[in-house]
Amino acid sequence: MVKVKICAGSHCSLVGALNILETLEELQKEYPDQIQIERVECLDKCEDIKKAPVVKVDDELITSAQNQIVISKVMERIK
């Protein structure tokens, strides 16, 4: 089971976290038992907005996250 934490704080939401969340939810439909998504409060990594959005895939912290990067990290772990 891959655990993904998506920051849903003000900074991260402004710069695309919600879109990553949507994409992950779509992916989860394909692998319902292998992906767990948690929306979390501000992870305090956003003092510089260029670091947002922040996503954690298991213990790996991804800053300036984008759909493609997050999805590929998740897929690596599923395969």
């Binding site: 849903a8 704080g9 003000s10 900074h11 939401s13 402004l14 409060e41 907005i49």
Partner: peptide, 14 residues
């Protein structure tokens, strides 16, 4: 407004 919240450093989740 979302951009204003960020500029004002208002963390909505908190």
């Amino acid at each position: 407004l979302a951009a204003i919240f960020v500029a004002a450093d208002i963390e909505l989740t908190k």
